[in-house]
Computed example of a mutant assay.
Amino acid sequence: MSETSTTARHEQDQDPVVVYTAYEIDFMLGLRDTENGRITREQIGLRSAPEEAREFVTAAVSSGLRARGKVERSGEGQWALGEEGQIVATALTSADRWLGIALSEGPAMRMAFVVKADRAVLMLTQDELDSFQVTALPDPAVVPDSIADIVNAFLEDGAERTVSLRRTDLADPSDQVPMMMHVEPSGAWRLGHLPLDEEGVLSVSDLPRDKVAAAVAALWDEGTSAAPAR
């Protein structure tokens, strides 16, 4: 996992940007081991250090966080997170809904994830390799428009681009709802949606550009992947 910096910023925070490495986020998740947190790790592809290096990495990470005043030791010798770390760790370990987003053009791909925990929402945007810029969204209701803006901006910038979306809900983490949006070489926009055919391929429909937000909203709010309403 890369040691490239990860940014965590609360929506209302006016302080300088708080920076975390991917290993630091993994460390914070490990302080509060929950089933939701384990699912979050799987959803965003977060991995701990290799077993043979884990002790060294953990010591280095905890020392770095402590030196920056982000964690401290309690009287019982337990690590306690600072305010910024609590914002990130609480959402990631209590998550009840995840939306994975992949923006691809040829072999190049960028990933992002929306993680919801009750009314708290974080967006993790891939920075480099396995590091992420983490930002807070003010409310789950803003997610569809925020994602639709990203989708439209990406697809409008060139043909043969693809956005893949995948919604997962805590009620049944194994039941992931997929959706895909693609720009053909001709410039036509297509929507890949359920049901799958016999070969496991998404059904395809025309995608009017003014239907992108509605499709994203149906996926995020209802877990629905279907042809655009006429």
Rank of each mutant, 00 (worst) to 15 (best):
E160D: 12
D172N: 12
D130F: 02
V204Y: 07
P185C: 03
F132N: 00
S146C: 06
D139V: 06
E156A: 09
S131K: 00
L191R: 00
L202H: 05
E198C: 08
V143L: 14
P185N: 10
P208H: 15
V151G: 02
E160H: 02
E160T: 12
A159E: 13
T135E: 09
L202E: 06
E128P: 00
F132R: 04
T135G: 03
L207H: 09
P195G: 12
A159R: 03
N152C: 14
A188P: 00
S205H: 06
L202C: 04
P185M: 05
L191Y: 08
V201W: 14
M180G: 03
S203Y: 01
A159C: 04
N152M: 12
E128T: 13
M179G: 13
V134M: 08
G200E: 00
I150G: 07
G158V: 02
G158R: 08
G187L: 08
D127P: 04
S174H: 11
F154A: 05
I150M: 13
V134G: 03
A141M: 12
Q126C: 11
L155Q: 00
V163C: 14
T135N: 08
A188N: 13
L129P: 01
D175V: 05
V201L: 15
L170D: 06
A141F: 09
D127E: 03
H193P: 10
E198I: 10
P140E: 14
S174F: 07
D172G: 09
L170N: 01
F154L: 10
V183T: 11
V143Q: 12
S205Y: 03
P173K: 08
L207Y: 11
P138S: 13
H182M: 02
N152I: 15
D169S: 15
M179Q: 08
M179E: 02
L129N: 07
P138M: 11
A141G: 15
P140Y: 11
I150C: 14
